[in-house]
Nucleic acid binder design. Structure first.
Lengths: 135, 135
DNA sequence: CAGCATCCCTGGCGATACTG
DNA sequence: CAGTATCGCCAGGGATGCTG
């Protein structure tokens, strides 16, 4: 019995709704999209970086100075990934000394409520180590 | 100038709301909770597994048969992590052959809307490789 | 059926030093 | 100021075989 047949027999045993819906849920919710979201924000420092840019702390040096434990190399790569995923844009000013700012795109702004949900759920369901001041 | 002082000066330059709010956002949203959520669902197969259990496909062998590419070892560990994080419970039936079922906890159910949001955002913002049938 | 034991390998991350 | 360039670690995951 192949996978599809097995899924069908399962769905009947489980008496779920329509098989198409069942299959769609198994594939879509399970497989691709959540993993995309996870990848987009899943870097170790990406939530911090993203959130700083949301609050207009949007220059390389600013972020680097504030987030301790974050190396320049990692900051570079995570910024590049956020840019590649279309959440932020890199604005280069042609002045000396060099000046670069990062800004949210439309897609980036659309992600704010999602990250807020993720944040709220964790706060409500786990004991967060309250660090009233950054160490 | 230390981090706090630097943050304060930044917040003034940025003319954000109150400093406490600013700091809280930087720490909370940025740091802990989102990373917790990411860790909870961040395993390579966790979304699939979680979603299957949501749809009452809740036995080790069922999940193993449906999700191709998933090894028993990995399935074991990810189930254990989901259990350790309190999203699912392991119900052992004392019969032969052995029978084990996994079920959502209250916390697990509370996570469903969050994962749905993550899913929807990805669908709306990325081209998902539509796989109408599982390969 | 529902796992555990073992070995291996890659990618994300960290530390440090250098540059246009 | 805003990055590159190297080197190196190690946890998450894959492959395969064994067990109560």
């Amino acid at each position: 019995m192949d996978r599809i047949a097995y899924l069908k027999s399962l769905q009947q045993r489980k008496q779920s709704a329509s098989f198409d819906h069942f299959l769609s849920m198994v594939n879509k919710v399970g497989n691709c999209p959540v993993r995309i979201t996870n990848h987009v924000i899943g870097g170790k420092w990406k939530p911090v970086i993203f959130n700083l840019i949301v609050h207009d702390v949007n220059r390389f040096g600013e972020i680097f100075r504030i987030v301790e434990g974050l190396s320049k190399k990692v900051l570079t790569t995570q910024l590049k990934e956020l840019e590649a995923d279309g959440l932020i844009v890199r604005k280069v000013y042609d002045v000396l000394p060099q000046k670069v700012e990062y800004e949210l795109t439309e897609k980036g702004r659309s992600f704010i409520p999602v990250i807020q949900e993720m944040c709220n759920w964790a706060i409500q369901n786990f004991q967060i180590a309250e660090q009233s001041s950054p160490k």
